[in-house]
């Protein structure tokens, strides 16, 4: 049996994941849905989390790892607390998404996919998000969409999240 890291809140998260898995375990081909759930809980899929999923679903770890690394949506490394995704699909690109991306990287002083020093942000390029009439589009986290974003607005978006974070402390 795998011994799990004693990180804060992890025990509860693994418990929730285990409950989710036991509810769907018998559905064929459910691995991807389980990984969606695991990433939602942990923010990324560590080797430990992958091993946990493999054990519970009774599939080889190699299969889980293969799936995790195949799909863009899954990440094996921790990301910033607020992931800023910039769509670089053609429609966004011709509306200046590259300039928005550059501004974000400059403001945060990071490279692509690198978390900032305080761990609050990371910037990612994503493919078409299907909101082309609002191009260029920026997505923060999983649900906060921003449309028709200019570089100046991109800077404001960062400030907004930073303010929210500071407000919490």
């Amino acid at each position: 049996m795998l011994s799990l890291t004693e990180c804060p809140g992890c025990k509860e998260k693994y418990k929730e994941l285990e409950e989710f898995i036991s509810g769907v375990k018998n559905e064929p081909g459910i691995l991807i849905n389980v990984l969606h759930k695991a990433q939602e809980l942990f923010g990324y899929l560590s080797e430990e989390t992958q091993q946990f999923v493999a054990d519970k679903l009774e599939v080889p770890l190699s299969r889980v790892y293969g799936v995790v690394t195949f799909y863009n949506f899954f990440s094996t490394k921790p990301k910033g607390k607020n992931q800023i995704k910039v769509c670089l699909g053609t429609a966004c690109y011709v509306k200046g998404a590259d300039k928005v991306m550059q501004r974000l990287l400059d403001d945060l002083k990071v490279g692509m996919e690198e978390p900032t020093e305080d761990g609050l942000f990371s910037v990612h390029a994503v493919r078409c998000l299907g909101a082309c009439s609002m191009a260029p589009v920026v997505l923060v986290g999983e649900r906060d969409f921003y449309g028709r974003v200019t570089p100046d607005e991109a800077s404001k978006i960062i400030e907004k999240y930073r303010r929210n974070e500071n407000g919490k402390n």
Binding site: P28, G29, L31, I32, N33, G66, Y71, N72, R127
Partner: peptide, 23 residues
């Protein structure tokens, strides 16, 4: 069933593999 961000999964047999829970 949810996809996980792979353009190739629009190809019907790749899509089928994905529904089966594979790459």
């Amino acid at each position: 069933r949810l996809g996980a961000g792979a353009y190739v999964c629009g190809e019907e047999t790749a899509l089928i593999e994905s529904i089966e829970g594979k790459s």
